[in-house]
Design a protein around this nucleic acid. Structure first.
Lengths: 198, 198
DNA sequence: CCTGGATGTTAGTCATCATTAACTGATTCG
DNA sequence: CGAATCAGTTAATGATGACTAACATCCAGG
């Protein structure tokens, strides 16, 4: 009945504001732990006014995850194709993920926590984008390490995501640049090590 | 008024059963996304019967996280002290974390998702155990790489936890043993790389 | 001017849910 | 035997929360 439409391509500033506030709240207490009233309150309007911008709480979450997945993937494609060689492409992917994780910790947190709460039509689409993002990494890695088998590279990629996305857990241990460098080095050698795996 | 008591040292099989079922549910939809009724249903009893075993939903969660944190930490201490040298100690810590993550994906998921929903008296205690667990790693790493500064080692440890705990996200990509080996290798070289960090 | 859309507001409504109450059947053990 | 404790049950209760309705304001453009 309800036609599945790709999210409005005119992201009004209000929508963004709401999505940002909701992300912070969801990251702290989870989707079901946050009320519509609270989300509204976080942007100065109250409760049901949100329904002027989103058709419901779930669709708000869906749009949030969809947006994150799209940003990650398109940024990855751009960076990878711009790079002059495989090694540089990998570095660009790593740097992109690190920047995103450090700049938007709440989005990263929600992104890998709340997929289970997205209703079905949108969930499939988000998964598709996530898969494409992983495959972007696998493609670059395959060029760089032709010996490694794709399932191994996929598993290693997921592991590196876990490593890079860990920053919300170790907030403030190190200044941002030092943290970025540290993570970049760890990710690079961790990926290089899979070459030696059978 | 309610005296904070360390969790009953006689873990009745019923309690464990309930905690296990609840962990699976919490991992899938989050603490607030699961009802008492559902948790009861998952173990064949219905709803309010849970109050014969736990004083409330939150205390159930608290006990769950407390138990996980304790198991991780005591296992780490045991393994580290048993090891003949620093390198072996680190390998033992890595292997322990991998085994736990692969054997209990739901517990791992809940452990780093739901701390924000634990009420205050217990939350502090859980954090304390988590801190001790991290410090166990930092101690071993310091012995192994005397040059590195503790904040860097702490950040690197958190990153490696993210790497090792990523398995719930990449379920079934690889057979268990291959996955364990892959993660172990990645973690080892990632940690070794911090030596070169300023 | 005045009409209509965009954006809010407050006051319901209806479900769901955590928790409590009151009651029942076993099993233990004195 | 009998009393108590254990582990359940079903039926309230009281909050909370998502969503809807009805109503207000503020422009923009004809």
């Amino acid at each position: 009945m309800t036609v599945v439409r790709t999210p409005t391509r005119v992201p009004s500033p209000r929508r963004r504001e709401i999505l940002d506030a909701a992300a912070t709240l969801f990251a702290a207490r989870g989707f079901h732990g946050v009320s519509i009233e609270e989300i509204g309150g976080a942007v100065g309007i109250s409760g049901p006014a949100l329904y002027r911008h989103f058709t419901g709480k779930e669709s708000l979450l869906a749009e949030m995850l969809l947006d994150i997945s799209e940003r990650l993937r398109t940024s990855a494609v751009e960076r990878a194709t711009r790079a002059p060689d495989g090694a540089r492409a990998l570095d660009a992917l790593i740097a992109g993920q690190i920047d995103f994780a450090l700049d938007h910790p709440a989005l990263i947190t929600v992104h890998d926590r709340e997929l289970g709460n997205v209703p079905e039509p949108a969930r499939r689409q988000i998964r598709r984008l996530q898969r494409l993002y992983v495959e972007e990494w696998v493609t670059v890695l395959t060029e760089l390490y032709p010996g490694a088998r794709p399932p191994v590279l996929r598993a290693a990629t997921h592991a590196v995501f876990g490593l890079l996305n860990s920053t919300p857990h170790s907030a403030g241990e190190l200044p941002r640049d030092a943290m970025a460098e540290l993570l970049h080095g760890m990710a690079r050698v961790a990926l290089a090590s899979v070459v030696n795996e059978r």
